[in-house]
Design a protein around this nucleic acid. Structure first.
Lengths: 339, 339
DNA sequence: TTGTACGCGTTATCAC
DNA sequence: GTGATAACGCGTACAA
C-alpha cells in the first residue's frame, strides 16, 4: 500500500539514498556488485521511482500534451495513434485535451499546459479560435509546440499538414470533369488556415474551368449533426441546380448523404458528393464515397517526431522543419457511375 | 522563459512564500487585501503553480490514466470523450495508453501507472491478456481502478459494462427470426469475459431455438484486416450453408462486408450480417448495417464518475458500484429486406 | 494575519 | 565507490 521509495531501499541495503539512486540510474561510478544488489531488491519490492519527485528535480516531465478538437473522428484518432507510438518509443507519456472546437476550452487547456506539466505540445486548433494570444503562454515558458493539420499561420513553429490547397483543387476538378456545374462547398470555419486553403483550391479550380465563384454556394456547417442536415437540405431545395457537393470535413459529407436521402436525391446521378475523410469504410457506404484521404497516422507521427527532436535535444523548433504530406484522392461511386 | 514561481511572487511583493501560497489557495487566514495583491501579480505574470512540486507535496497527481486496446475505433473514442468530460469537470488530467491488444504493452503501461503517476486508472483490457497479475501492482499501491467494457472477472473492483449476454442473445434471435439457420460467429478473444458472454448469448439463443451449437462456425478474428477478410472468405466458401454472420466486434462486421463483396454474396438476400458497432454511419452503409449499439459515451462517463468518487473522497471502490448500461439492437438493411 | 522551517522523493554536487 | 547534503517548488504545522 505504501509506496517503496529510495529511502526504504537504502535502509534495507545499508546504503545511502544517493548510492541507490545512482545504482538504479546505472551510473559509471557504482560497483557492479552494488548495482546488482540494488536492482534485485528494487524489482523484488516492485520499486517504481516517484515520477513527480523526479520531474521536479530534473525539470523534465517526460510528458507531452496533445490538444485536439475532438476524438470521435477518424482523422484525430489515427493521428493520436501515431503520436502515442512515437511518445512510447521515447518513454514519454501523453496527456489528451479535447476542445470540442471551443476556443475557451483551448485556452484553458493551454493555460494548464503552460504550467509546466508537459515538455512539449502538439496542437490542432479549434475551429472557433480567432485569437491566438493563448499560444504565447507556451512560448514564454519555452515549451515547444508543433501544429498538426490545423495550424495558426502567424506562429513561428513547425507544422505538419497535408496539401490542402492542392487536394481541394484536384477534388473540385474531379467534380467538374464528372460533369458538375454547380458545386456547393461545405466548410466549418473561415478562420482556420486549413479552411481558407481548401476553399481557395475550390475557388481556383472553378475559375480555371471558367466558372464563377458563387459565395452563396458556400455553406458553413456547425457542430450539430441534426442542424447540419437541415441546412444542407435547405440549400439543396433552394438551389435545385446544385449537382455536386464538396464537403471539406468528413462529418459534412455524411450529413450530405443524409440530406440527399431525405430529399430523395440519388447519388451520383442527381448529385455527386466528395469529401475529406479518413473513414476506412468509405468504400462500404451506399454509394461508396469518393474521398480525399489524409495520411492521418503519418501526420501524427511526424509531428511528434519533430516535437521530440526539440524536447530531447533541447533545441528550439524552426518553421522550416515543417512538413507537408500529400493526401490522396480516391474516386468511388459517389462521383462516378461505374467506379 | 524562466517560469514564475512562488518565490518570485513573494520577493516582488515583499511577502513570504508561505503567505503567497496560502493567498493563492484562498485560505481563510489571509487578509483580503493580501489575497488581491497576490492574485493580481500572479495573473499579470502568468503564474502557474508547478504541478509536480504540488503533486509531490500533496501526494495527488490530479491525473488519471486510461488504458485501452485502440483508439481508432468508435467505441473507445466515444468512451474517451465521456471520460475526458468528467475529468475536466473535476480538474483532472487524462493520460492515454494504447495497448494495441498486446498484453506486454498493457503490462508495461500498468507498471508505469503503478509508479504513482496517476490517482486512478480506467482500463479496458487487451484481448491477448490472459494473466492479470499486473493489475495487482495497482492494488498494492492503493491506486483505484475501474474497468469499462472489457473486464477481468476475478478482480474485486467496479466495472461498467453493457448487457453483453442479453444483446448477443437478442441479436442471434433476430437473425434466427429473419430466417438464418447457419450463423457464423466472429470473435476476437476467448479469454475476455466480454467474449465469453457474447458467445454464450449466441449459443443459448441457438439452443433455445432448437439448433445445435457448432464450434466450427466460431471464427477467431485477428488484428489484421486483410487477414480477417481472407479467413472469413475462406469460412464462407468452405461452409456454403452459412446464411448469417454475427460479428462480435465492429471491425469484423466490416471485414465481413468486404468478404461478401469479394465472393459476390448479396446482403441480406444471400447472407445476413449483424454486428456490435458504434459507427454513426452504419445507416449509410450498403446495405445499412444492423447493429448492437453500445452506449459508449455513457460507459466512459459512468466509469469515470465511479473512479472519481474513489479518487476524490479517498474511498475504496467496491464491486457493487458496478453498472450495466443497456445496448440497443438497431435493425437495418443487412438483416432484413425492407428495413 | 503573516513568517519560519520542514518535508514530499529524487538527483546533482561535493567531499571522503 | 560511496555518503552527506542541498535543491527542485510547493504546502503546512507551528510559532509569533
Amino acid at each position: 500500500m505504501k509506496p517503496v521509495n529510495l529511502k526504504k531501499l537504502a535502509e534495507e541495503l545499508n546504503l545511502s539514498v544517493a548510492t541507490v539512486s545512482r545504482a538504479l540510474n546505472d551510473r559509471y561510478d557504482i560497483s557492479q556488485l552494488t548495482k546488482d544488489r540494488v536492482r534485485e531488491l528494487a524489482t523484488r519490492l516492485h520499486y517504481e521511482p516517484n515520477p513527480y519527485a523526479s520531474s521536479l528535480r530534473r525539470q523534465k516531465s517526460k510528458t507531452i500534451g496533445v490538444v485536439i478538437p475532438e476524438i470521435a473522428n477518424h482523422f484525430f484518432s489515427l493521428a493520436i495513434n501515431g503520436i502515442e507510438e512515437v511518445a512510447r518509443d521515447n518513454n514519454y507519456h501523453v496527456l489528451i485535451y479535447l476542445t470540442h472546437e471551443d476556443y475557451q476550452r483551448e485556452l484553458s487547456s493551454m493555460r494548464l499546459l503552460a504550467g509546466g506539466r508537459v515538455d512539449g505540445v502538439l496542437l490542432s486548433v479549434a475551429s472557433s479560435s480567432q485569437d491566438f494570444a493563448h499560444l504565447d503562454m507556451l512560448r514564454e515558458r519555452g515549451i515547444p509546440m508543433v501544429f498538426f493539420d490545423r495550424v495558426y499561420e502567424d506562429m513561428a513553429t513547425a507544422r505538419v499538414t497535408t496539401d490542402d490547397y492542392d487536394s481541394s483543387y484536384r477534388a473540385t476538378r474531379h467534380l467538374l470533369e464528372e460533369g458538375c456545374r454547380t458545386i456547393a462547398y461545405l466548410t466549418i470555419s473561415h478562420h482556420l488556415s486549413i479552411g481558407k486553403r481548401r476553399l481557395q483550391g475550390y475557388i481556383d479550380a472553378l475559375r480555371d474551368s471558367g466558372l464563377a465563384y458563387d459565395e452563396s454556394l458556400v455553406l458553413p456547417g456547425q457542430l450539430d449533426k441534426t442542424h447540419d442536415i437541415a441546412i444542407i437540405k435547405e440549400l439543396l431545395e433552394s438551389r435545385p441546380a446544385i449537382d455536386g457537393i464538396f464537403a471539406s470535413v468528413e462529418s459534412l459529407a455524411m450529413s450530405s448523404y443524409e440530406a440527399c436521402r431525405l430529399l430523395g436525391r440519388t447519388i451520383p446521378q442527381d448529385i455527386k458528393i466528395l469529401g475529406f475523410s479518413n473513414l476506412e469504410i468509405a468504400s462500404l457506404l451506399s454509394p461508396p464515397l469518393t474521398t480525399i484521404t489524409q495520411p492521418a497516422y503519418a501526420i501524427g507521427k511526424e509531428a511528434a517526431k519533430i516535437l521530440f527532436q526539440a524536447v530531447i535535444k533541447n533545441k528550439p523548433i524552426s518553421s522550416n522543419q515543417s512538413l507537408e504530406i500529400k493526401s490522396e484522392l480516391i474516386v468511388r461511386g459517389s462521383t462516378r457511375l461505374q467506379a
